[in-house]
Write a protein that binds this DNA or RNA. Structure first.
Length: 485
RNA sequence: GGCGCCAUGGUGUAAUUGGUUAACACGUCGCCCUCUCAAGGCGAAGAGUUCGGGUUCGAUCCCCGAUGGCGCUACCA
């Protein structure tokens, strides 16, 4: 038996803050590679230009480095199978789409988004499963030539044959999908970018990935991928689908119900070792006899973790337990180490300097520094209704407005002007005065009606932490409101 | 709705892969320590393994069904 060169990858999309789910899947892949002397590849899947966030890629790099999950090949370090950014590989996908077009396993589709939407609606109304109607499946060469000559935009779809696809999931065994449930997936969008399905298969093959370890949500599209490998005549990798991290209510983990940004965990003062340890607890994987206390390092995970032991129920990401674990790591630090941890995060010079600048004209003795800035250093503030509720507003409309504020903040540039513009625009649309609008936000973020400049404070406090604070406020108030009823 | 995946205390996991009083960790509660609060120590409550059928001398574990949860169902990943 020849020694197989194990190669695995994680493929995050730069669509926002780096996600705990990425860290989780990253950890599993990292361990898998390290345990087998394989390579761990980082690939950026930036094929969706509509959701692209320019700052995202660097945040992903930083977050993974912070955790200590280093990659052997990637956009920043290069490697023999680059480029590792899909937006730089469009030519490759185009060529491969041509191959499929030529061998008859794919076809051009000239349907417009509007037509597709209408068709989908009709199917839904008729209680039919929404599926591509196949309008362009068998166009004559002449029609295609005409459309092309007319410059009509088109997509490339895969031509799913009759039958069924069975593949092996390393954790679950064989899974079969009847092709009546596999749609003629778009492979190339009309903007010339590939969809995930094409890019993922092409890259995994070209990058010689041996094991695709990804989240469970991909199971239903795996038949499409398997079909594509067959269309190309390529050898398939092994598939491992990891359970999805969950909110308390068991739904797929989401920012609405849980902090999911790694930036948040970092800024809120979690230690990377604790986060990694906690992630390693999700789904099991570590032998319990040897680690009954459930505390272990990355090195110990490399030594003892076994992907095959992952249990398939979706684990609830329990912040309470993460905090306990983090506390354990904090206590294990030397006094000096603990102080250093503080100084490099929540009491860093840069953080302190930025905060100090806001207070100089607002205090009369240095001893008052804390009075004005405590909210920068606490995990939560809980303003009473007298503080946050505008005089002429009901609690219901206020909370509804806060929900809107969250949405506005999520989408804005995290600068003073960006925040101000987003909030003002929302206020105007909803007929909230600037004063009501900003005072409410001030109360939620600082816990008080008196504070340093709001926008500056929010910028310094950080997007991830600010949003978490506002979301938690909303959540708590909603609960309080519903209990009253 | 269709298709798929999953199912052990409130939460995360164990149970020589058919034989245990179902174990450990978090959380909760109580006691001790203590100027307070944590930490730490000790202890307790909490699941008869979603339910119903099978197979078996015997099922947490194997099979079938039901129920429930989750995911997918885009020119998003």
């Amino acid at each position: 038996m020849t020694q197989e060169n194990i190669r695995v990858r994680i493929a995050p999309s730069p669509t926002g803050d780096p996600h705990v789910g990425t860290a989780y899947i990253g950890l599993i892949n990292f361990l898998y590679a390290r345990q087998r002397g394989g390579k761990f590849v980082l690939r950026i899947e930036d094929t969706d230009r509509t959701r692209f966030v320019s700052t995202s890629e660097d945040m992903i790099f930083d977050a993974l480095k912070w955790l200590g999950l280093s990659w052997d090949e990637g956009p920043d370090v290069g490697g023999p199978f680059g480029p590792y950014r899909q937006s730089e590989r469009t030519e490759i996908y185009r060529e491969h789409a041509e191959i499929l077009l030529a061998n008859g396993t794919a076809y051009r589709c000239f349907c417009t988004p509007e037509e597709l939407e209408a068709s989908r609606k009709a199917q839904m109304a008729a209680k039919q499963p929404p599926k591509y109607a196949g309008t362009c499946r068998n166009l004559s060469p002449e029609t295609i030539a005409d459309h092309l000559a007319a410059g009509k935009p088109f997509t490339v779809r895969m031509k799913v044959p009759d039958g069924s696809t069975t593949f092996r999931d390393e954790l679950r065994g064989e899974i079969t999908f009847d092709h009546t449930n596999v749609d003629d997936q778009v492979l190339m969008k009309s903007d010339g970018f590939p969809t995930y399905h094409l890019a993922n298969v092409v890259d995994d093959h070209l990058m010689q990935i041996t094991d695709v370890i990804r989240a469970e949500e991909w199971i239903s599209s795996t038949p499409k991928h398997v079909l594509l490998y067959d269309f190309f005549g390529w050898q398939k990798p092994r598939f491992w689908h990891m359970p999805l991290l969950r909110n308390q209510d068991k739904s797929k983990i989401s920012k609405r119900k849980n902090p999911v940004s790694l930036v948040y965990y970092r800024q809120a003062g979690f230690l990377p070792d604790a986060v990694l340890n906690f992630l390693g607890l999700m789904g099991g994987g570590m032998p319990q006899e040897q680690f009954a206390a459930e505390k272990f390092s990355l090195e110990e995970m490399i030594q003892h973790f076994d992907v095959k032991n992952i249990s398939l129920g979706g684990p609830v990401f329990d912040l309470t337990k993460l905090k306990w674990l983090n506390g354990e790591y904090l206590r294990a630090l030397s006094a000096e180490g603990f102080y250093e941890a503080l100084r490099s995060t929540i009491l860093s010079d840069t953080y302190l300097k930025e905060i100090a600048a806001l207070t100089q004209t607002r205090i009369e003795t240095l001893g008052q520094f804390g009075n004005l800035t405590h909210f920068f250093f606490t995990d939560e503030v809980s303003p009473a209704p007298e503080v946050f509720l505008p005089k002429k507003r009901t609690i219901e409309e206020t909370l509804a407005f806060v929900a809107e504020q969250i949405t506005a903040l999520e989408g804005c540039d995290w600068t003073t002007s960006g925040i101000e513009a987003a909030l003002k625009q929302l206020g105007e649309a909803q007929s909230w005065s600037v004063k009501e609008n900003f005072m409410l936000m001030r109360a939620i973020v600082t816990g008080s009606t008196m504070s340093p400049p709001l926008m500056e404070s929010m910028v310094i406090f950080g997007k991830a932490r600010t949003l978490d604070r506002v979301r938690r406020f909303l959540d708590a108030q909603k609960k309080a409101a519903s209990q009253k009823k």
